[in-house]
Design a protein around this nucleic acid. Structure first.
Lengths: 221, 221
DNA sequence: CTGGCCTTGAGAGCACTGCTCACTAAAGTG
DNA sequence: CACTTTAGTGAGCAGTGCTCTCAAGGCCAG
C-alpha cells in the first residue's frame, strides 16, 4: 500500500512532522491501527521513508531545473537551481521542514539512508561552482589552518578543484541559500519581506556575485 | 514554582521541543499531572514562555558580547555578536531549535509575545550595520521595484538609514549567519566541517566584508 | 476437492500524552 | 470561629506508538 505514504504526506502537510500519526493514517485508510504494522515497521521507519522521498523529490526538481539551462550559462543554472529549491520548499513546506528544520524529537534519521539523497542538491551546486572560472575579484579573508584542513577534506570528498577561497564562498552561498528559504518558511521574515519570490531572486543575484559566477558586467535583470 | 520552567528546559534539552511533556515535568516535581495546571495554563503557554525566555537569553548574550567591544570597532562587534549567537546556540541547541527550527506541530507562537524579544538580535545587528560607512566597493545587482518596496518598509520599521544595497546585503549576512548556525546544529555540515567554530569565524569575516564593515585592508586574522 | 499455509486484518491491551472536573486538606484572613 | 484561597489528589476522556492473540480469506500442492 503506497497509499500509506500518500496519506502520510497529506497529514504531514497539515500538522507537521513530529505529529505524524500511524493511527490517523490507519483511520483515513479505514483500517485498524495495528494493521499498519503489516506494511510499515514503525513510525520512525515511515518518517525515514518520507525523508528519503523528500530529498529525492527536491533533488529531482533541482536537477530538472538545471537541465533546462545552457550548460555554459552558470548564472542561469545557479538561479534556476536556487529557484527550484525555493519553489519546492514553498510547495511542500512541511517536507522541507522535515529535511532542513529542527529534528523530530526522539528520532534520528539513519545517515546511511539520508546523506546520499540529501547530498544531491549540494553536489549539483558544487559542480556548478566548480565549472566556473570565478569572476570574483573582491577581497578574501585569510583562511586559518583548521578551516583549510576542512576545505581540503571537502574538496577531496566532493572531487572538485576549486581553491580554498572559492570553496569557502561556495559553502557560504549554499548556506545562505537555504538560510533564506528557512527564514521565509519559518516566519523569520514575517512583516519585513512580502514579495518573497522577488527578494529571494534578488539575493540569488548577490550570491552569484559572491561565488563569482557573474561579474559586475553580465548581470541578470 | 519557577522549577517548572527549569525542569522544562532540562527536558527540552534531552528530547526536543515537540515532546515537551507536562506529565513528565509533574513526575519530576513529585506532583500529580493535573496540579500543573495551577501554575501553567496549558502546554502551549509553557512553550511560549520558554520561547520568550530563550529569545531574551539569546538577546542578552548578544548584547553582552556587543558591550565588550569599542563602539567604533564595527568588525569586532559584528564578530562578537555573531560568535555569541553561535555560542549560545551550541550551548542550548534545543532552545535554538525552538526559535529558528521548524515550528512545533499544532503550535503557533503568538506573534504579540515573540516578535519583540525575537527582534533583539536583529535590531542589534541592523544597528551595527547602520553605524557603518560601508567600505564595500563590490558590485550590486539591480534592485527590482517590489524588493525596493520591501526594503523601504524594513528601513522605516527599523528606523535605519542604510541604502537599498547595504540593507539588502545586511539582510543576506544576517540570514547567512543563522543559516550557518542552523546547518551546524541540524547536521547539514556533518562530515564536511569539523572545526565548526573556526569555520564559523571565518565565514563571519567574509560576511563582514560583504556588509562592508571592513575593507580588504583592516582585516582581522 | 481437501488440507495446510500465508496474508490481511481485527481487537484487546499496555504505557504514554494533554486536559477537565470534582473533591479534599491545609493555610491564611476577616 | 468561619470563610476563602491555595495546593494538590485522583478519576476520567480522548488521543498516541506498539505488541499480542486470534480469526477470516485466498492460494496452491496433493
Amino acid at each position: 500500500m503506497i497509499d500509506i505514504k500518500r496519506i502520510a504526506r497529506e497529514q504531514l502537510a497539515v500538522q507537521g512532522g513530529a505529529a505524524l500519526s500511524l493511527r490517523a493514517i490507519a483511520r483515513e485508510l479505514g483500517i485498524v491501527s495495528s494493521a499498519m504494522y503489516r506494511y510499515v515497521p514503525s513510525r520512525d521507519e515511515l518518517l525515514t521513508m518520507l525523508i528519503e522521498d523528500a530529498y529525492n523529490s527536491l533533488g529531482d526538481a533541482a536537477a530538472a531545473a538545471d537541465e533546462t539551462c545552457e550548460r555554459a550559462d552558470l548564472v542561469g543554472r545557479w538561479k534556476a537551481v536556487g529557484t527550484a529549491v525555493r519553489d519546492w520548499a514553498v510547495a511542500s513546506p512541511s517536507e522541507y521542514a522535515l529535511l532542513y528544520g529542527s529534528p523530530v524529537p526522539g528520532y534520528a534519521a539513519p545517515p546511511e539512508r539520508t546523506v546520499a539523497p540529501g547530498s544531491r542538491v549540494t553536489l549539483l551546486l558544487v559542480g556548478l561552482v566548480d565549472a566556473a572560472e570565478s569572476a570574483y575579484d573582491g577581497p578574501n579573508p585569510p583562511v586559518p589552518p583548521t578551516v583549510r584542513a576542512d576545505l581540503d577534506g571537502i574538496r577531496e570528498g566532493l572531487g572538485v578543484r576549486a581553491d580554498d577561497d572559492l570553496l569557502a564562498r561556495a559553502i557560504l552561498a549554499w548556506t545562505a541559500l537555504f538560510g533564506l528559504v528557512s527564514f521565509e518558511l519559518f516566519g523569520q521574515f514575517a512583516g519585513g519581506v512580502h514579495d518573497h519570490a522577488a527578494h529571494f531572486d534578488h539575493q540569488l543575484d548577490r550570491l552569484a556575485l559572491l561565488i563569482g559566477l557573474s561579474g559586475p558586467a553580465n548581470m541578470s535583470v
